[in-house]
Design a protein around this nucleic acid. Structure first.
Lengths: 147, 147
DNA sequence: CTCTTTACTTATCATTTGATAAACAAATCG
DNA sequence: CGATTTGTTTATCAAATGATAAGTAAAGAG
């Protein structure tokens, strides 16, 4: 297997993924928040409850900046902080009711566009897609970050 | 096939792709340029020669902003503009000698990290990865942009 | 009980990015 | 030919982002 050719395919692929995510994601974000804030909310939505450090790590954002953006999101009533019983230095973040509504709405739009994208696919195709997602996720796009 | 489950897998997958590309890409970029500029250079490197409109389209950047960044890149001697014979309004962009060197270097780093990532993969795995890239590229992450 | 480390916040600043208005020249259309 | 469209530039502005210094309070280590 020619690894160099595979690398080129990999580059082209990731480029496409970025483009498609952009296409599928644009316009879903409310004007009330910035792209970075949206991305944070998405992360919270999927992983809540999370600590501020976790957000900082996963979003590749410094603690001070993460703290600032989270403060803004809290002020907009999109998420809320609450104490961690075991360690009073830490804080958990979760979406507020309003934040849940916004994110549910956003994901609904994204899902609709995703379904649009795969509407031509046969059942066999879908199985193949499913398997391909598994393969690439586990063998190429796995996380190498330490816990 | 449960399309809802597939959607969740899709979301998790794209998130991972973004994280991994970030990991694999960080530190490769010279301090002399901004992230947006790097991304433009990457696009030029892969698609040259390209017109300024093409860059604007593919990078989801307005013409004025594209023009500005390209000007900066030209001033840094990383790319150069040249006239299109058939249409004197248009301009082609290509990497300069210096730009080629920078990008070749960058891609070398990225490739090394990619290879590192798949070093555990057997030949069968590699074939599967190859096939999966094709499947997802053509059936999910295809471009829907008009030419 | 100090000392250090961890988790987080506040404040501040420079830089990058995004958005918009206005201009211009070449091409195309009627 | 004049009018419109296309491809690009210049200028300007506000907002978002990133980086850094300095602070607090709780936890953990010796």
């Amino acid at each position: 297997m020619d690894k160099n050719a595979l690398f080129h395919k990999f580059v082209a692929f990731t480029t496409s993924v970025h483009q498609v995510t952009h296409e599928i994601t644009k316009d879903v974000k409310s004007d009330a928040i910035t792209p970075v804030q949206h991305s944070i909310l998405e992360y919270i939505a999927v992983s809540q409850p999370v600590t501020i450090s976790q957000i900082s790590d996963c979003q590749n954002m410094s603690m001070p900046n993460t703290s600032r953006e989270l403060k803004k999101l809290s002020e907009k009533n999109l998420c809320e902080k609450f104490a961690v019983a075991e360690d009073r230095r830490k804080q958990y973040i979760r979406l507020s009711k309003e934040g849940e509504v916004m994110m549910t709405e956003a994901f609904k739009h994204i899902e609709a566009r995703f379904l649009q994208r795969i509407k031509e696919a046969s059942d066999v195709d879908l199985e193949e897609i499913n398997r391909s997602l598994d393969v690439l996720h586990s063998k190429v796009f796995y996380s190498s970050k330490p816990l």
